[in-house]
Computed example of a mutant assay.
Amino acid sequence: MDVSTPKNYYWYMDKEGLDYIPPSAPDIIVRSLTKENIRKFVEAFAEDDAYWMKLYFLSGDRKGVFDMDKMNKMLVDVKKTNDTEYKIHERLVS
């Protein structure tokens, strides 16, 4: 995980001649790079069985959980579920 400040985004865009930050694994944003701010974000990320820390860590890996084939299958499954729920809803309201 990368820890950064908002100013770093501007510096990066200026350096690369861009008007946006390219897609990548999420960064951790703190107001300033101090031990206290980093400690606070680590504590916040450790809440709820470290759900967000695990998600951020895994999002940087294109294998395993975030394998493109697995993600595409999950999206197909979600669409099927949504389509089924929509059809059920339509029958109930008509």
Rank of each mutant, 00 (worst) to 15 (best):
K40R: 15
V78N: 04
K79M: 04
S94V: 04
I21D: 07
E90M: 15
L33T: 01
R39D: 15
K87E: 07
V78H: 04
E43H: 08
D83P: 00
S94T: 08
K73C: 01
G60T: 04
D48T: 05
E90D: 05
L55P: 04
D67F: 00
E85V: 01
S59V: 00
K73F: 01
D48W: 11
D69M: 01
D49S: 14
M74T: 06
R39T: 14
D49P: 09
P22S: 08
F41G: 01
L92W: 10
E90I: 13
K40S: 11
R31L: 12
A25Q: 05
T81V: 05
D19C: 08
T81M: 07
K35I: 11
M68W: 04
K54W: 03
Y10W: 12
K40V: 07
I29P: 08
N82K: 13
Y20I: 03
T5E: 09
W11C: 13
Y10D: 12
L92P: 09
L58G: 11
F45L: 15
L18K: 11
R91D: 10
Y20L: 05
E43T: 09
D49I: 06
T34N: 00
D77S: 06
I21T: 06
F41S: 12
N8C: 11
T34I: 12
D67Y: 00
Y51S: 15
E85C: 03
K54N: 09
D19S: 10
K63P: 04
N8Q: 14
D48M: 11
L58Y: 03
M74N: 09
F57I: 13
L92C: 04
E16M: 11
T81H: 00
K80S: 07
F41A: 12
T34W: 00
E43Y: 12
D48C: 08
R91M: 07
L58E: 12
K73L: 03
E43N: 13
W52C: 14
W52R: 14
K54G: 07
W11I: 13
K7T: 08
